[in-house]
Amino acid sequence: MIRPATPEDVPAISRLIRALAEYEKLTHEVVLDESLLRDHLFGSRPYAEALIAEEEDGTPVGFALFFHNYSTFLTRPGLYLEDVFVLPDYRGRGHGKALLAAVARIAVERKCGRLEWAVLDWNEPAIRFYKSFGGKPMDEWTVYRLTGHALELLARDGVQ
C-alpha cells in the first residue's frame, strides 16, 4: 500500500533515508536532522512531500520524496524525485513500481510537464528498473552542485 506520509512517519522516513545512504555507500554524507525533516515536510512552508510504501501489516518498507521544479521551455511545473527506496528484503513485491506510479499520478494530476530523477551510474538494478517502464537517461546533461564553503562564498562574494 502507498500512502502520503504524515508527521508521525518522520522516524520511519529517517530510518529509510539512512538505509538508502548505506545502500548507496554514502553514509558519510548523512547529517539528517529529524526536526528539520519534519519542518521541511510538514511545516508552514513545506519544501518536499513524501509517500510511504507499507506491507500489509503496516510496516513501512519504502518511501518516495519529491518536490516541484519548473520547466521554462514547457512553461509547466515538474516533479523532481529526490529519493525512491525500498528496503532490500522487500524488493520484488511491487513497492518500488507502486511508489513511482503514485508520484507519476501526482505529476499528471498537477499537470506537470515532466518527472525527473537521478541515479548513480553504478546502480544497474535501478537503471534496469527505470528503463523497464520507459525511463530515459539524459546523457547529454551533467549535474553540477554547490555545497558548503563554495556555496557560501558564491552567495557572499559572487565569485569563488
Rank of each mutant, 00 (worst) to 15 (best):
V10G: 08
P11T: 05
P11F: 05
A12N: 09
I13Y: 07
S14E: 14
R15E: 13
R15L: 13
L16C: 01
L16P: 00
L16S: 00
I17Q: 09
I17F: 15
I17R: 12
R18V: 04
R18L: 13
A19M: 06
A21F: 09
A21G: 09
A21I: 06
A21Y: 03
E22K: 13
E22H: 15
Y23L: 07
E24D: 01
E24W: 00
E24P: 01
K25A: 14
T27E: 03
H28Q: 12
V30G: 11
V30N: 10
V30M: 14
V31W: 02
L32G: 00
L32A: 03
D33G: 04
D33H: 11
E34G: 09
S35C: 09
S35H: 13
L36Q: 14
L37Y: 11
L37G: 01
L37H: 04
R38W: 04
D39T: 10
D39I: 04
H40D: 13
L41F: 12
L41T: 02
F42P: 14
G43D: 15
G43R: 10
S44V: 10
R45C: 14
R45L: 15
P46N: 11
E49I: 00
A50Y: 03
A50N: 12
L51D: 00
I52M: 08
E55G: 01
E55L: 04
E56Y: 07
D57A: 11
G58W: 06
G58Y: 12
T59I: 04
P60I: 02
P60D: 06
P60A: 10
V61I: 08
G62V: 08
G62D: 01
A64S: 15
A64T: 03
F67P: 00
F67A: 06
H68V: 07
H68S: 05
H68G: 09
H68Q: 14
N69L: 08
S71C: 09
